[in-house]
Design a protein around this nucleic acid. Structure first.
Lengths: 179, 179
DNA sequence: CTAAGTGCAAACATTTTGCAATCCA
DNA sequence: TGGATTGCAAAATGTTTGCACTTAG
């Protein structure tokens, strides 16, 4: 397991910042890399409480996840419901996300061509990109099948952004508006 | 002004749902369409308090923005800092966003080719897309110029997601990890 | 009239912070 | 040893909700 290499990288990161390697930090780090799932801070805290090991307080969970974030060991993504979702990134190739409105599952996708077009857009605007969030919101294959008819559910609700779905009501009086 | 048409559409929307047209709802609606800016609920509430007109409580602001959202009159986007940002959408063509980490400015961009690739990705996974959020985080042209050297600022901090920037420390011990 | 809508304040959920006690380097 | 780190509880945010009062239809 190159887990070792990642751990070393983490220790190097701490040393480089003159931060101490505490049992809490070690535990948070290890736990974050022990799962391939996406998790919220609160969920993560629950895991630590349920599993044996040195006590880690909620505050320390937040503080340490923030640290791992700064170090680029994990990244956060906004699933669109108030809380941030994390996933470890070291050792993973970049990808974007599809979030299922019904079951909450998060699937990953990647398309190099999209990345390229993204950079093209930045170049055009003189925007120096640091990171990006590209999230598709909808229904995964399984849930889409179960939906009787996407009356109500299939729109509206998403707290998402850059929405491409516009409600019928609004569409109605549109036609040529440009305001 | 096709403002009229939009207002009518809003009234139709309310009637369709058997909702009442109150002075508060009218005011929130009018104000949302009176600006071309992106705004947060809190900011919006401040506007209403500062400007003359029928009193609208914070709760009603949230409730009504939610309503406009459901109706597809406005859409929300997550600028990555805990609060949702809104913008009216009726009469606007779809676009995605670039958020400046330094000045907070939000620029818009659009690329039909990206949209197409997005749909392709969904088709491939059997994902039924409802909406999407595509946000590029970084520094706008003006701010990028001002940055002395992107030591610290240029990475780390983003609460963004789908990050493509990975810190040096983390990169270091990577090479071939795939875990 | 009367169900729906409003304002208010309290409730919530997530994340942050102040501070005394504790611990790593 | 001594500044960094922790835990705890309180605070800060942003948003939602319960309820008595008001009002659109």
């Amino acid at each position: 397991m190159k887990h070792d290499a990642i751990r070393k990288s983490f220790e190097r990161f701490l040393r480089g910042r003159e931060l101490k390697l505490t049992p809490q930090r070690r535990r948070v780090f290890e736990r974050a890399f022990a799962t391939h799932e996406h998790f919220s801070a609160e969920e993560f805290y629950a895991w630590l409480r349920a599993e044996p090991g040195p006590k880690v307080s909620r505050a320390t969970v937040y503080r340490t996840l923030g640290l791992l974030l700064e170090g680029g060991f994990i990244q956060s993504l906004d699933a669109g419901r108030g809380e941030l979702i994390y996933e470890h990134v070291v050792g993973h190739r970049h990808h974007d996300h599809m979030v299922c409105l019904a079951c909450g599952k998060i699937e990953e996708f990647h398309d190099e061509r999209i990345e390229a077009l993204q950079h093209e857009a930045c170049a055009k605007k003189g925007f120096q990109i640091v990171s990006h969030a590209h999230r598709l919101v909808g229904y995964c294959r399984g849930c889409a099948r179960k939906l009787p008819l996407e009356d109500e559910a299939a729109r509206g609700d998403d707290t998402g952004a850059g929405t491409s779905a516009t409600s019928a009501q609004a569409e109605a009086a549109l036609e040529d508006q440009r305001d």
